[in-house]
Structures are given as C-alpha cells and as structure tokens.
Amino acid sequence: MIRHWDLFRELNQIRREFDRVFNENGPRLPFSRVSFLPGRGARQYPLINIRDDKENIYIEALAPGVDTESLDISAVNSTLTISGEKKAACEAVGDEAYHRCERASGKFIRTIELTTPFDADRIAAEYKNGLLLITLPKAEAAKPKRIAITAG
C-alpha cells in the first residue's frame, strides 16, 4: 500500500479527513449523517466501505433506489468511478402533497483512487438490496507471495 510520497495527496487526504470528521454527528451513528440528503452529501455519495483479502478488493457502496440502467462503473489506471442517478420518488407529485421528504435524489459521481493495482478486465459488480458490491481482482504483482527458504 505504500506509494511515493506526494505533498498534494497528503494535503488532500487531511482535508478529506477534516470533512469527514465535521460532517459526522458522532462515530456511533454512522448512518445518521447526511448521507441521503441533497447538497451537503453530494461529494460523498454514495458512501463506501472497502475491504480486501488475498485475492480481491471489495468496494461496497450504499445506494438504495438507484436506477440500475443509469449505474455506470469505469476504471482507469488506479481510479474507479461510480456514477448513476437516484430518481425522485414521484415526479408527478407536487411539493404541497409531501408530508415528509427525507430521501435525497439526483445524479451522483464518485471517484475512488486505489493504491493496490487491480485487474480492470475482470471487475465484477452486483447491485443487490440497494447495495452495490464491486469486486476488483488484485493484479498478480499485488498478491502476496510465499517465498520458499532453502536450507543450505
């Protein structure tokens, strides 16, 4: 996971970390922040979790009610871009008919930069129950290797 040190990348990271801390209501309520509200959450939509094992990197995005037709995932070098559109509940309904309006809608785009090289040709994505799961197979060079020791 170590890359060449880059001042701008580091600064960007710090800024992002600040944003994350101040946007949060508290570490105990990860979901209660504005993740679904329009405006504030736009840059951070959808929220993601990243996991990995020896073979793959798994990116899980929280995106309920997104039109599967509009979902688009693309990979260039080490960056992965997720874009799509979450349609409003019902466009024909006027504002006055709403009792509550807490769900956000609109177009979104999010770019994730990964430090581990992955095989872009074999990326698999699945959208299930409002969660988008992207499986990125690690490039051969990034997989851990066992080194045999010969006893002399």
């Binding site: 979901f31 209660s32 679904f36 509200l37 929280l62 995106a63 309920p64 009610g65 509940a89 019902c90 309904v93 008919a97 709403y98 009792h99 509550r100 309006c101 807490e102 769900r103 129950n129 409002g130 969660l131």
Partner: peptide
C-alpha cells in the same frame, strides 16, 4: 437506524417510501 422516508398524499391514499439498504 431510522430509515429516511418520503410520504406524499394522493387523492385516494398515502404513499410511504422508505430507504432500507441491505434489507431483503
């Protein structure tokens, strides 16, 4: 978690829309 909801009224009833990702 309290799921976010949209509630709107039509002439013949109410519609409640609720985001619940990860629930089957």
């Amino acid at each position: 978690l309290k799921p976010p909801v949209d509630i709107y009224e039509k002439a013949d009833g109410l519609v409640v829309i609720c985001d619940m990702p990860g629930v089957d």
